[in-house]
Design a protein around this nucleic acid. Structure first.
Lengths: 398, 398
DNA sequence: TTTATTTACTCAATTAACTTGAGTTAAGTA
DNA sequence: TACTTAACTCAAGTTAATTGAGTAAATAAA
């Protein structure tokens, strides 16, 4: 039988509806806690009775907890509900060719565990085993029961598609070409696993517990080895038709500019990435590689690094203007595997274009902000993915 | 009481669930007709019984109709369902400062009526009245009963937001600053009204009845007075936080390039828009304004127009590469208020970047395609918006 | 040609979750 | 102290789904 196309959107029934409504309530409380049931009912388009049943169930599941009564207004004081940070937890993993970073987050997105270990062999079998060991160690180290683990998010370098372009200087995991990472990790770990790219995970992280907690439309520019983009549109992750959305590293910012391994000339990554910074500094005999190296150069106000920052900011400003005009986001967030000081130095230097839909009088937040979660972003973001999935109405696919 | 933030996503109940399921079934049939009920049930995650009830209801509403039995396979032959083109219709309006274009579409998206009249006064009151007259004339001219009118879509020039940037040479409607167009048109017309921008309407049009009927992720580059972008992501329209997404006319393709009224230098619009073409040709004493003028220049292989096409294609290719890397779409569609010959001439000249996630071996459609609906795109798209809304599971807001 | 198998579909009963409507509670206000 | 307002509970009612048993009509096998 021929397979016909489907969007993945499926019909609803009472059970799926209940799941949906639970998430609607959770998402409302996430953004507006503390909140009473009548208020939730009004905002979520449900009857008070329905919300009462749902909050009771969520309280039983330890996802919500009551927190006092709202007083000062007429009428019976409303019992306020909050997230129960101790009710559940998530684990996030960043897998790189040489290192595994594991973090655990409580339901509020707060980091409650962190570990970083070297990875000797990045081939699938040993790497998956090593990740499994670290996840088990993380579970054991927290005060949570394994039953309250919502899932494990994993951020790892692609490419996974057929012909995804590779980033400048990007290290790829060896031997993973024919591996289905999600299935492999789930088999090893025995909990639900989500695979995501670094930029998207970072974006989700900011929404779950960062500067974008009240935003439904924003862009996250992620500095990893290359430069990636995570987009949250109407509260949902944008992935593209083949899961490769957000490859902004290869946007051309300078026509006829520097050669890029991808085949283009003048890609953003050749100017504004960590790799570009390293190359630039090497010309002057400076060997900078780690985030700390860059932070030190900022602290020293190194003139060569300043030059790089100036140039990088110019190219970044161009791309940010492009993103603004394409997405009309609430804000563009910058972050990733660079120290806060470097991100700040870049933001300071941004000369954003006037001709942008984001250049408006009535803004309530800056056009560009620094991400909250710092250099552990990827692992924290991986964990945040799990929380996000639990909380946010996944209305596209039911 | 302070207003708290909401995504607009609301909870479900039996009634909303039913609406959702109807749309899920309609959307499946749209993309896969003809389809039997058991097949629909499998694909939509519903029981056969539920689908049977839903198709019966949709047949009663004249949105679906049975169309023979599927034979050649084992088992009882499945009754096949199709869209009923005669079951309902939609009207689309393009309102410009000097002209009103009205089209009517049947449920399959086929044009069944068309009219173009001059508009004497574009101020709200006379313009709304004139649109109302044209809509009433359209309803009367079709064989449909007014009851089966799903709604009226209106495409009109913005800007509607606080400080949206204006396009090069764009004509704005006078006196509309404080008008809520949707409410005003609904009051005049007495049917549901949708307001949309031209690029988004064109994109939806391609999905409803064009080259993107089986795509859920694509970009539409629209040549109006300026250049706009419509994005369908996971089957849904992307609008941005403030409704201004898709302003690609002001993406800078040439740093330090031509002055643009928006304040930037080197905006795409200053190279690749109709306005840019007109300016370019004026240098050589050629006065080209209408689409027909441009079509003629293509037919004549005019060297000055060829120069413009070459340059425009270069800037367009750059932006298309950017869109590909950002959205990872199934395809990028070009169309709008330019004759097919001009669009084709541009597409021929596109030298798309290699460094793009869309540059893949296993493509099933071209990276760039010409839109189907031709120069009436905006009005047809406006009507298609209505059909799209009726058909596509609007799961974000229930 | 007969029989078996497969698949689509209907009818009736059941179920899950939300809504409705009638109270109850508890605060602020006159 | 009585009134008003608003949150909330309980029980019954409603809706639209699912489930299970049975029927119909085609192809495939004997």
């Amino acid at each position: 039988m021929t397979t016909k196309s489907t969007t993945g959107i499926i019909g609803g029934n009472a059970l799926r509806n209940r799941d949906h409504n639970q998430k609607v309530v959770l998402d409302y409380v996430r953004a507006n806690e503390p909140a009473g049931r009548a208020e939730i009912a009004r905002s979520c388009g449900l009857s008070i009775q329905a919300v009462s049943n749902i909050t009771a169930e969520l309280e039983r599941q330890k996802l919500l907890m009551p927190d006092g009564h709202k007083t000062g207004v007429r009428g019976k004081p409303a019992l306020q509900y909050r997230f129960n940070p101790e009710g559940a937890f998530a684990i996030g993993v960043e897998l790189r060719p040489d290192v595994i970073i594991v973090a655990a987050l409580n339901l509020s997105g707060k980091q409650i565990y962190f570990e970083r270990v070297m990875l000797e062999d990045a081939h699938p079998e040993p790497a998956i085993k090593a990740v499994g060991d670290q996840v088990r160690a993380a579970i054991a180290a927290t005060a949570f029961s394994p039953k309250s683990l919502l899932g494990v998010g994993v951020v790892m370098p692609g490419p996974f598609g057929e012909t995804a372009i590779s980033s400048a200087g990007e290290a790829v995991l060896p031997g993973w070409e024919d591996v289905d990472p999600q299935a492999a990790f789930e088999a090893e770990i025995g909990h639900p696993v989500l695979i995501e790219n670094d930029a998207t995970a970072a974006a989700v992280s900011e929404r779950v517990a960062g500067v974008a907690s009240d935003m439904d439309d924003f862009c996250y520019v992620y500095f990893g080895t290359g430069i990636g983009l995570g987009v949250i549109s109407q509260g949902h992750v944008m992935r593209g038709a083949f899961g490769n959305a957000g490859e902004i590293g290869h946007i051309v910012t300078q026509i006829g500019g520097r050669d890029c391994p991808c085949g283009n000339k003048g890609c953003l990554e050749t100017y504004a990435s960590r790799y570009a910074a390293r190359q630039h500094l090497a010309q002057f005999g400076i060997d900078a590689n780690s985030g700390d190296d860059f932070a030190q150069l900022v602290a020293q106000d190194n003139p060569h690094f300043r030059d790089w920052l100036d140039q990088a900011a110019q190219h970044l400003a161009h791309v940010i203007g492009t993103l603004e005009n394409i997405f009309d986001p609430q804000s563009v967030i910058l972050g990733g595997a660079l120290p806060d000081a470097v991100i700040n130095a870049l933001i300071e230097r941004l000369d954003l274009p006037d001709g942008s839909v984001s250049n408006r009088e009535d803004r309530t937040c800056p056009r560009v902000m620094r991400g909250f979660s710092g250099r552990l972003t990827a692992a924290l973001g991986a964990g945040a993915m799990v929380i996000h999935q639990t909380i946010t109405p996944n209305t596209r696919t039911y």
